[in-house]
């Protein structure tokens, strides 16, 4: 079996960051292993965090994420993958796998014990909304008080492509250190504004 780069990267500035993001999905769809590795390095952590956020134990989240990537690669090799929108596709795949695993657990518990299973309904893993409209409005107010620079840095850090701080710095013309500082500051503002919502 091909070995894919699923190891955690020690720093936010991932080696994969040197590859142009726009080329990677197209190359991966053609079966380019290096492109798959770069995409996995870039997006795997988001998949893991998405699983953690949905209640998947940390001991299992990394394995489920790895299985999700392998599933996507299998689909690509079978010609079943028409497009590769990441990280959303990998997250969706990982959530499906975690739901399957949770169902298996429920069945096993039901077999092992006559008492009803106490695990949560696995459908909750997929259905849970992370942010209500009201909280989104609160967040919007916070962002509206930030400078356009800070807001853009935050968007680049969290929306879409999973850019590293160094890539964001290059894009907006700031130092990597300043980008890191801005991301921390905006995160703190949002965390304070949304305090309690995610405890």
């Amino acid at each position: 079996m091909t070995t894919f780069a699923l190891a955690r990267l020690g720093a936010p500035e991932a080696p994969a960051a040197t590859a142009p993001e726009c080329d990677l999905p197209a190359r991966a769809l053609r079966g380019d292993v290096a492109a798959w590795n770069a995409l996995i390095s870039r997006h795997n952590h988001r998949v893991v965090v998405a699983l953690l956020a949905r209640g998947v134990p940390v001991s299992r989240a990394r394995d489920v994420a790895q299985d999700a990537w392998l599933k996507l690669i299998e689909q690509q090799r079978a010609g079943k993958l028409a497009e590769l929108r990441l990280p959303s596709l990998a997250i969706t795949q990982a959530i499906f796998l975690s739901i399957d695993a949770a169902r298996r657990d429920l069945r096993e518990r039901a077999v092992m014990s006559s008492s009803p299973a106490d695990a949560a309904d696995p459908r909750d893993l997929a259905d849970e909304r992370m942010l209500s409209d009201e909280r989104l409005r609160v967040a919007e107010r916070v962002l509206s008080r930030c400078t356009p620079n800070a807001r853009r840095v935050f968007e680049l850090a969290y929306a879409g492509d999973g850019l590293s701080h160094a890539e964001i710095a290059a894009r907006v013309g700031l130092s990597t250190q300043r980008v890191r500082q801005i991301v921390c500051e905006v995160r703190k503002l949002l965390r304070d504004a949304l305090a309690g919502a995610f405890a």
């Binding site: 992370m130 942010l131 919007e140 962002l143």
Partner: peptide
């Protein structure tokens, strides 16, 4: 949630 906020923004 930060990702959702950034996407919305």
């Amino acid at each position: 949630a930060f990702e959702a906020i950034a996407n919305a923004s």
